[in-house]
Design a binder for these strands. Sequence first.
DNA 1: CGGTGTAGATCTACGGCGTAGATTCAGTAC
DNA 2: GTACTGAATCTACGCCGTAGATCTACACCG
Lengths: 230, 230
Amino acid sequence: MSGTTEAVGDGTGTITRDHVLHTALDIIDRDGVDGLSMRRLGRVLGRDPMTLYRYADTKTALFDGVVELVLSDLTVDATDDDWQSQLREVARRFRAIAVAHPHVVPLLVTRPLATPLAMRPHGTLRPLEATLELLVRSGFRDVDALHIYRLFFGFLYGHVLNELQELVDNPEETDDLLRLGLHRLPLKEFPLLRGLAGALASYDGAAELERGLDILLSGLRVQLTPPGRR
Amino acid sequence: MSGTTEAVGDGTGTITRDHVLHTALDIIDRDGVDGLSMRRLGRVLGRDPMTLYRYADTKTALFDGVVELVLSDLTVDATDDDWQSQLREVARRFRAIAVAHPHVVPLLVTRPLATPLAMRPHGTLRPLEATLELLVRSGFRDVDALHIYRLFFGFLYGHVLNELQELVDNPEETDDLLRLGLHRLPLKEFPLLRGLAGALASYDGAAELERGLDILLSGLRVQLTPPGRR
DNA sequence: CGGTGTAGATCTACGGCGTAGATTCAGTAC
DNA sequence: GTACTGAATCTACGCCGTAGATCTACACCG
């Protein structure tokens, strides 16, 4: 019986990179990015922390691995004949991933800022390539496909960042205004925001995503049409 | 003559919260978020690190202060009669801020995930309130104004995250494919991405923002019109 | 069988971190 | 002078990432 509160691995048997990444993901899911330390990860795996450097060169590389692991669930069917509905499905899948792993989202949106595109884990580039393929197959020029990709994933990033914002301040309160803590905002300065307590409290991420997609796709239809209609 | 390499303040005179925040911003601008530590900040200001806790309760509160400082440059003219062109201007200003302080962007998009809305620095909520006012004045219902705000700022977040992605891998190389490091991607798996080396290399953030705004605003016009036209 | 190489796992240690709590210091009021 | 008070500083604790040295286990060769 282990003396530490958290040991899980028994120190025997073989460990794989996948074990390491999944365990790291578990810790992040539970306690956020800051909750993950090499020492703690080692403790959970029943291994010396230094051993982990066999599976990830550095802690940030570990982060990149977690991002890749999470994004490996994001599939894009490039053979779909209807690019608009395929994008909708991708959006829903992406949102589902973000909602399932909210604490990973900061890494998801932030790691690319520190990693040259070509050095990113291939798993994170696959959705990009597949989306390009989807759009090119649908008749878009490749540069337009790139524009659309950027706009689309930018929109997705923005959406999940919005949806996962911490709204609630005092969960056990029943009145919306008090629960969100909005009563502390000066009425003179924030009248509209305070008036929207009800709307803020009843935020529906899935519906909001669909609304955004409606607008985005509608804009795309107006502004960009595949030159070679199939 | 100081023995340390970085001391700037002489330890005399009075320090203000603004001094502290500006200095913190300088450090982040230079060396990124991870480059900022309480000890280093104290060193630069010529003060004991513990003194800083007078101006920010905690390090994350310091981050929030920096975010507020940076966002204080973002003005929204709620009295503008043309909400679409005002949103365009806000977008340009937001982008300018992000480009001026790229290392702050991770904080910008990430801090709200950890802070209940009502506890956020008021300076960061002012653009929200002002945007709502702009839209309501233009005839939108308040809940629609909220939707548009979310879509719009989500789009902006996504755009700057896209624009600030690290693309270059090997700066002194002249050939686009090599400079971006794309030649290391397996040709079989990433044919389209590799083919876009030129387009990736000549990314123009300002132009891309305008294109995105065209599409977004066009979508908004189609999907949402103020019920009470003025 | 002993010896040797080697690849992986582990240990030790360094310099840094955020910040709680104790202490000192500067300035004012008497 | 003394007492008080608020700000500034000091000390120390328990963490962190990881470089480099060391140890372990085992395959192979003589």
